[in-house]
Nucleic acid binder design. Sequence first.
DNA 1: TAAATTTCCATGATATCCCATAATAAGGCA
DNA 2: TGCCTTATTATGGGATATCATGGAAATTTA
Lengths: 165, 165
Amino acid sequence: MIRRFRGESLHKVDTKGRVSVPAAFRRVLEEGDPDFSGSSSPNFVIVYGGVRGICLEGYTISSITKVDKLISRLPRFSRDREILERFINTQSTYMQLDETGRIVLSTRLKEKIGIKDEAIFAGMGEKFQIWEPNNYQNELDALDISFNSLSEDENPFLKLDQLQD
Amino acid sequence: MIRRFRGESLHKVDTKGRVSVPAAFRRVLEEGDPDFSGSSSPNFVIVYGGVRGICLEGYTISSITKVDKLISRLPRFSRDREILERFINTQSTYMQLDETGRIVLSTRLKEKIGIKDEAIFAGMGEKFQIWEPNNYQNELDALDISFNSLSEDENPFLKLDQLQD
DNA sequence: TAAATTTCCATGATATCCCATAATAAGGCA
DNA sequence: TGCCTTATTATGGGATATCATGGAAATTTA
């Protein structure tokens, strides 16, 4: 089974910026790090310049590699490529879990997304997100509203079945 | 024969949140988990953000994988994809049956659907649902009412045969 | 050397495993 | 057909491991 990031959970952020990464996510990060050995802790990547910059996004090494390869297909000096590299490469950083499954969020990263002493982790399949709880709730509410205002043929659930296998 | 989830049954939820999954459903979960070996217990996925969020929905690995693959076809950062991942990946969790055929419902999951010490399992073909008994009865009643108010050409039983394969 | 990181240890809470038992269903046999 | 034996199922309790979290010690950095 190819395990994906699933589920959401709330974690404390202590005074040093340490947060536990949900245990279920750790398994995914381990499987997604080709160099992970069992003795060490998995590496992964956090992108903070995200599409909307309001949350952090964590990628396994293998899924960020996929994204990197897609970017590499764009013409070397194109504007598009430059933009994407700025967001995905410049505004990102390698991370490593510590022995107890935590990472530390630097002051800079915490400021980026407005986190104080709690953080929500949200599984998004090939990546996961880290949110400040209030912002997360707002996001859910906004999603709900925009979802409910969709017409029948705009409903992404219904569009799914129209894609062919 | 492709076995589907059929039937309904009532089970105790103990103080630790443990519930037996109906034996008939276990067979379907086993068949739907490509990694199931006979020595282990099958994995599956519970989605709690469901369309109406009032019950839990259980999917076999192979049927949730179908959904995941469809989602992965959407452009990586599109709004549609984000909405779907939010509902289907974020609001779901992997589960594994234990040796005796039980799962444990976390406090969070129990709260989501208002379960105390009993749960109803309802087979729905490709998925099954878990309900708080009273809510389940209300759902049945509501279904009855709305069904009886349908005109002849709105009757889904009659529409069924008009679909082509 | 003060401040900030990182490493190491400690603990309560939660989840998992292992064993036990009662209830139900399935099967065999006279 | 009725009864006895044997699996399977549903449920409970206690022991054990994992997880989330905090603080102190050691190390680095400025």
